[in-house]
Nucleic acid binder design. Sequence first.
DNA 1: CATGAATGAGTTTTCATTCAT
DNA 2: TATGAATGAAAACTCATTCAT
Lengths: 225, 225, 225, 225
Amino acid sequence: MAGGASGGARGGTRGRTGGRRMPRAVREQQMMDAAVRTFGQRGYRAASMDEIAELAGVSKPLVYLYLHSKEELFTACIRREAQALLAAVERAVEPGLSADRQLWAGLTAFFAYAAEHPDAWSVLHRQARSHGEPFALEVAAMRDEIVAFVAVLLEAAAREAGSPGPPGERDIAGLAQALVGAAESLAAWVNESGTVSAKEAAATLMNFAWVGLGDLIKGERWSPH
Amino acid sequence: MAGGASGGARGGTRGRTGGRRMPRAVREQQMMDAAVRTFGQRGYRAASMDEIAELAGVSKPLVYLYLHSKEELFTACIRREAQALLAAVERAVEPGLSADRQLWAGLTAFFAYAAEHPDAWSVLHRQARSHGEPFALEVAAMRDEIVAFVAVLLEAAAREAGSPGPPGERDIAGLAQALVGAAESLAAWVNESGTVSAKEAAATLMNFAWVGLGDLIKGERWSPH
Amino acid sequence: MAGGASGGARGGTRGRTGGRRMPRAVREQQMMDAAVRTFGQRGYRAASMDEIAELAGVSKPLVYLYLHSKEELFTACIRREAQALLAAVERAVEPGLSADRQLWAGLTAFFAYAAEHPDAWSVLHRQARSHGEPFALEVAAMRDEIVAFVAVLLEAAAREAGSPGPPGERDIAGLAQALVGAAESLAAWVNESGTVSAKEAAATLMNFAWVGLGDLIKGERWSPH
Amino acid sequence: MAGGASGGARGGTRGRTGGRRMPRAVREQQMMDAAVRTFGQRGYRAASMDEIAELAGVSKPLVYLYLHSKEELFTACIRREAQALLAAVERAVEPGLSADRQLWAGLTAFFAYAAEHPDAWSVLHRQARSHGEPFALEVAAMRDEIVAFVAVLLEAAAREAGSPGPPGERDIAGLAQALVGAAESLAAWVNESGTVSAKEAAATLMNFAWVGLGDLIKGERWSPH
DNA sequence: CATGAATGAGTTTTCATTCAT
DNA sequence: TATGAATGAAAACTCATTCAT
């Protein structure tokens, strides 16, 4: 539960991992767990390789042997956590359902993931985006995947509704951007307030977006004139 | 303008503005200009006082003499830019207008400000929130002001519409949170894509939110199952 | 009373010295008062010209205009305070008295002075001696004067007693050194303990030294054989 | 030798001792040797970590890795040297001897130690006492041990002499204070004059104190008027 | 007579990174 | 496979000192 995602070997309560001499893959995951936690809490610059190595229970040279440099380590963390987040969302969305149910399931999974893995979410949402292209691009790629996925759902919904004046691609794109953006912001709200649950946040967003989408589909628009 | 900043005297690419020997108040603003730019681009930790001083065209000791420490300098920047952003939004909103026109004006001003002052926006939105309570609280205060202001507008809109089943306070609060959050996220979209204008972003959000609000007012809700 | 010595203009309770525009001599004394206090409490290196100037109630350039540099300022302080200490001791010793009474009076005055001017004493005893020849020599000169004076008293005492086997010059010199040294050490004891008075300390030393001197005069010696 | 230091491996003028890659314990001692020398000669503030590191033949980060900070390094030096001085004195005093012989042996060892380790002596006597409680207390503890030890000897001497009017505790305490103080001061005399030996200084003090003590035992006192 | 404005040079401290074993 | 020993480079911050007014 602690750190993040893909592993499985991600260490339960064993803490500081009993034995020396572990297979490389396991050690690497431990290091990345420690790194995600440290990066997430301290930020990229403030996190020190010393602290990461100590938290991982290994010596610094070993971290360098496996992960090569702070930048590569950070990149590896971003990639792993991005995959894990995507996987969590995809796992939740059952393809057979209607578009709105799929969106609802995805949003709920997303908020839950962000709440359960705050360090991972901090790495993806805050740290990665504040430290230059190399890292930001990594996250942008994942985000684009999500935005595209949401756009597909919205389009499907419009089609399901057999709308007379169907929203254009640009409308859909803007809506998807706004929806994902709002979700990201609400994630912070959920994490920080402590009193708002993943389901509540998802419901707020669905009300915010889905009903509005319905009107878009019906051709209603707000416009300054 | 006011006591604030990011106004326009912000100097183009001239860097190293003006001559030696300026009154303290002027130098302080120059230093903060440089600091905002540096913090915004590099992040709090990565920004070095050396770089800030050089960009401001002064020596490091002078920066310390006037602004005391990196933390204080950062705080001063946050405060100044938060005031400036608030002021820009408030200036744009004419109290006489209808609620939707007010919201529209505010959003447009907000996106325009974020686009024109990307470093200030980065400081407020990313840097300040990633570096511990002291700074985050500063920004949270400003954000709360904005959220409250938006909530007032939404409530006014509901009243104007004379809704039969008026949305509760919690609905309004959630909506305002989501709206502000979406706006924050869209700001990045506007800044990074380069192809989306402030007005477009504002329109997207109005469609996204205002129409949906209309349905809320009418009592429509989306709910799971 | 506060600071130190020779002045008189040494500022009563007026504090921060009301008026601007004072004659140079007065300003200089004020600066030196501040300097002695700062040097005495912080030590030579840790004392900053900034603090001294502020404590003196003048601007830093003025300090430099009058006292030229930190080193010169320190030297000036040492000289002034050395004179003041000497003067205090000399004032106390009435030439007409017997040798032991003179010594007693001198010791008492010395302890009292050190207790009443702790910063001056710190400058002379600790700071000046820990920061290189230039300063140490200044103090050594004063100390030698005192040692010589004490030696004269001891010799006079021996003569007064019409001793049969009079102590040699080297004996006297050693005794004077030890006596002055013991006095210096006891001064710290008096200042720090708070419970020992100048008179007590002087009495301890007189017992310690004078009675022993009597035996020396009588020709008694301790020797490891 | 013991856990202590200033032993003899203290390196002559070789500086930059031995090769790269030494065990931590050895390097630590080298660093402390360099630190004692530097602190002793320059004073706490004026000593720079740069200089200490260079003199120790290592890089600055290593000094920080092992000794953590300038303050901790200074404290470590004080402690080590205080132990070493105490050990030297204790080694010299054979418990079987008479009180006066014990005192004589202790004084001689003390003067010899101060003469042979001038930097250590400077650190203990001057630097540690001029830079605030934390350091001063460290030395005060050692000094108190010595004063107490001397007091015991004086008391033993009084008892040996079977005095009729034995000196009170306060008399003894004052005497011990004065004796230790005089010894401290004479140490400077020995170190600086160059012409006075440890034995001579010890003899001077014995004459100064022991004979006087004899009179105290006999009930003689000096008193004003 | 007096100062606000300004800085070059140095301080302590930390960090990512690499050998030698 | 794994590490104790070691460092170059840079960061935040301070200080004695000087001009221009």
